[in-house]
Design a protein around this nucleic acid. Structure first.
Lengths: 130, 130
DNA sequence: AAACTTAGTTTCGTTACGAAACGCTAAAGT
DNA sequence: ACTTTAGCGTTTCGTAACGAAACTAAGTTT
């Protein structure tokens, strides 16, 4: 097909091109700036290792496709590792790499802000009490 | 725009519905989980007040449309305030609300992680143009 | 054989993001 | 009087990300 395994293609995209001032926030966003990445990482931080369906249950509202796509992206960015355990039925485990674990302070900051500055609306859709 | 408006209506979208376990990370993501939001907020944290073009220059790679859309979303979420100063030519200023300023620890965590765990690539791999 | 489990993939529709061009107001240059 | 410049966007159109729902595939249990 392709001469030199173009599938892999080291998609370490150019984080920042010349001239522009490089910024840590921008850099972080290139790696975890997708909708579900921080949530997935938070669950793996909490549980260490999770299987596909466990992860999905923990998150709650994510579809198969989006979880699958997100995990693929996270692997490709070396934040998550995927292991196939040969049992029957086959078991697939996801866990954070060291790089992924290093995101702990970021996730903690997100968690803290979310819990202290966003109130969960306790639903029933008519409580406009704040 | 400050008076009651049926179009406005939602005020605070349902962050989480009943049975699901609510999580601070998910909540945060609902508010700042867009590609450019953290970067925009970081610039406003740094400079206090910025005009449209200043903000665009500070960020570097964002288009008019996306910056405009993002700012609109941030206003709607009460993280950014927009002020029109009636000069000639008209001046429009953006700054963080108190709620927006409270994101400082989150942005700092992102900044720190980005600067310590992502290296700026300096365009190796193909050094043809630069 | 039918149903279930795990771990996804396929299809298709909607929303977010991007590039480039254009619009508007008003001053300033020629 | 025109053209250019500056500020602050909007319009148009194309691609990528996200989502809902159905489906696949290997093996297991009923």
């Amino acid at each position: 097909m392709t001469e030199t395994n173009e599938e892999y293609e080291v998609t370490q995209m150019p984080i920042w091109s010349a001239g522009e001032e490089w910024c840590g926030v921008t850099a972080s966003m290139q790696l975890i700036g997708k909708k579900w990445h921080p949530v997935i990482i938070s669950r793996l931080l909490k549980h260490g290792t999770l299987r596909f369906n466990q992860l999905q249950d923990e998150i709650g509202d994510i579809t198969n496709k989006v979880l699958s796509d997100s995990l693929e992206d996270l692997q490709q960015k070396n934040l998550v590792a995927r292991t196939v355990v040969n049992e029957k039925p086959v078991r697939v485990e996801y866990e954070l790499t060291e790089q992924g674990k290093s995101l702990k302070p970021v996730i903690e900051a997100l968690h803290k802000w979310g819990t202290t500055h966003v109130q969960p609306v306790t639903n029933d859709e008519d409580t406009l009490t704040q």
